[in-house]
Design a protein around this nucleic acid. Structure first.
Lengths: 187, 187
DNA sequence: ACTTTTGTAGAGTGATTAGTCGGTCAGTAT
DNA sequence: ATACTGACCGACTAATCACTCTACAAAAGT
């Protein structure tokens, strides 16, 4: 019933399929089952819709990625949970993942604020700092660890999308996580 | 004088700046200093221009990345050269790198053939196979190694773009390469 | 010399697009 | 009851876009 949500859902689907600029707002409105004017009632411009969709998706992603994290866990346990959650989100929310990727690599990304770009890093930097101080993680810059981590997860997601039969394979996740952990843990 | 090249150069610049669909062909022609009709003389459609630009950039990238590779080198030496070449290309040809990334994450990527997607993997798979057989690289699927490698390089490129003072820092490259090599070498 | 091909120009066209506008209608406060 | 608010509609518009067309000049082939 919530038309705003319907518009966002239709926008997600069509924008991923057809790209940002070759998806007319009229098509989004039609797919959402609302009138053209209604779309512009909720979003002043098409750009505002796209930016709003990105913000929504990012919020959803962060919420799901942090699930099950508690302060008293070991660094490795926390990292493992985040790693699993991240990959799981990207696989189950494939459209959202693709939108995020498309958005981040498009000129829209330049519209994001510095804070917006650093939000995820800041969320994890305490944990990484803790890992370095406890001599569990390698003593390299925090944001370098974050970058490597982030892209390693993207690699696994991309690999899983090319080899979908592995999505249900718990052994593969074990292998991939250990591979990942070996890369950032202190030797 | 070569107008085709001028059109491609102008297209690269504008498409990266403004995105695929919000860059009019008329703007590309204008920036290239040619008439509208000339653009369509060289490229039947706008899509053909974009696809052609991608093909050009990919060729340039592969050529530069393979420079200095010889069969008799050790696996580590070859990997190191490719790693340096790749990162160097992405940093010096920033616009081309950005175009490639934007293209690969846009719906245009679905127009690529299977071969096109696997070309780079195939170029490296013999080397990776050699590394696994000689027990230098981890015994995990070749395409998984390739994926991890590829994304690790993207991570470094992204990190360097955020920390441009490191671009001239040879020590950083050493650190980053060893980090990378530790991840794929057999322990 | 002549014919054909190729490169170049730029005005023109039909389709499409983001966004507007005037208005209906249901709900809610007064 | 009355006034007000905001959701919602869809026809409309001004602008823009990809691409075409006609024309012409330079080169290349014969």
């Amino acid at each position: 019933m919530d038309k705003r949500a319907k518009i966002l859902a239709a926008a997600l689907k069509l924008l991923v399929e057809q790209g940002f600029h070759s998806t007319p707002t009229s098509a989004i409105a039609k797919a959402a089952g609302v009138a053209n004017g209604t779309l512009f009632h909720y979003f002043k411009t098409k750009d505002e819709l796209i930016l709003g969709l990105y913000a929504d998706i990012k919020k959803d992603s962060l919420r799901k990625i942090l699930q099950g994290i508690e302060g008293q866990q070991s660094v490795k346990a926390k990292v493992k949970t985040i790693w699993y959650n991240s990959i799981n989100w990207s696989i189950t929310e494939k459209e959202k993942h693709n939108f995020k990727q498309q958005f981040m690599h498009s000129p829209y990304a330049t519209q994001l604020s510095q804070e917006d770009l650093e939000e995820e890093l800041k969320l994890f930097s305490d944990m990484i700092k803790e890992g370095i101080e406890k001599k569990i993680l390698k003593d390299i810059p925090i944001d370098l660890i974050y970058h490597i981590t982030h892209y390693q997860m993207l690699a696994i997601v991309s690999y899983l999308n090319l080899n979908p039969h592995l999505i249900e394979d718990a052994d593969f996740y074990e292998l991939a996580f250990e591979l990942f952990w070996d890369n950032i843990k202190r030797v």
